[in-house]
Amino acid sequence: MSNLACGCPGSQVRTVEKKENSDNSQTGRIGSELRQWPTQLHLVPPSAPYLQNAHLLIAADCAPFAYAEFHRDFIKGKVLVNACPKLDDTSPYVDKLAAMISQNDIQSVTVTIMEVPCCGGLRMFAQQAIAQSGKDVPLEIVVIGVDGERRN
């Protein structure tokens, strides 16, 4: 566990255990695909055990609200970190992401951003972090429209 400045017990690093083959056909509800806690980029330490050999998803804070199938289409099988390039203090993001990639054999990075200009910062942070890590990690950028549709 990492010592965090806020000291909040809710920020404790943990893996979320999933029940396999959960059948929601009777209720019509889609189950959560979240595999770990916390998700906020500021709170996830590069040493979190769930990052080892993970497929990393970097999501703009607004993307899951805009895209209805976000859990199924993006979170499933990935470790999620989320951030807002407009409202967050982003100064540590490139170094933190680079540490996550270099220390954990990250298999791939997917970045989900909104079509608004400020979200482009997450794309830039991911590109710079991969370069800084010195690793050749596949990068996919997915743009979500404010209407909830995938743009690419």
Rank of each mutant, 00 (worst) to 15 (best):
F74H: 10
K86L: 13
S22Q: 12
N21C: 13
D88G: 00
P45T: 03
C119R: 03
K18S: 06
R29P: 00
Q52G: 04
P38W: 00
Q107G: 04
D88V: 01
Y67L: 07
F65E: 11
L97G: 02
P38H: 01
I30R: 10
N21Q: 14
N53V: 02
A54M: 08
A99G: 08
S22N: 12
L122E: 01
L41A: 12
M114E: 09
G120T: 08
E17Q: 14
K76D: 11
F74G: 06
L56W: 00
Q26A: 15
G121E: 09
P46L: 02
V116T: 15
I113C: 07
S47M: 05
G121S: 10
L43W: 03
N104L: 08
V109M: 11
N104T: 11
L41N: 06
T112E: 06
L34Q: 08
A68W: 09
R123M: 02
C118Q: 02
E20A: 15
I106T: 06
D73N: 09
R14H: 12
Q103A: 09
V94F: 14
L122N: 02
T27R: 04
G31R: 03
G77T: 09
D95I: 08
Q52E: 14
T112C: 12
D105P: 00
I75M: 07
K96D: 10
D89T: 10
A126K: 01
V94C: 13
T39Y: 01
Q103V: 04
E115G: 10
A68M: 13
V81C: 10
G121K: 05
N82A: 12
I58C: 05
D61K: 06
E17P: 00
R14V: 13
A63S: 09
R35C: 01
T15M: 09
M114Q: 08
L122I: 02
L41V: 07
E20K: 15
R35G: 02
F125H: 07
L87D: 15
Q127D: 14
K96R: 13
L80Q: 14
T110H: 01
M100E: 03
E115W: 09
T90I: 15
D95R: 06
Q40T: 14
A48Y: 02
I106G: 01
H71N: 14
V81P: 01
F74P: 05
G77F: 06
F65M: 07
I30V: 14
V111R: 06
C62G: 05
V16T: 13
I101H: 01
H71G: 09
Q103G: 03
E115Q: 13
P85W: 11
K86S: 10
N104D: 13
Y67I: 04
C118T: 05
Q36G: 05
E69I: 05
D61A: 09
L57I: 02
T39D: 00
G120F: 05
G77D: 04
S102W: 06
L57K: 00
Q40F: 14
A83R: 07
F70W: 04
C84F: 08
V116S: 07
A83M: 15
K76T: 12
I101S: 00
R123L: 01
M100L: 05
C84W: 08
F70E: 03
T90H: 05
R72P: 00
L87K: 04
N82C: 10
I30N: 07
L97F: 05
Q107M: 11
T90A: 13
V16S: 06
A98G: 09
M114V: 15
H55N: 14
D89E: 15
F70L: 02
D88S: 04
T112P: 07
F65Q: 07
N21V: 12
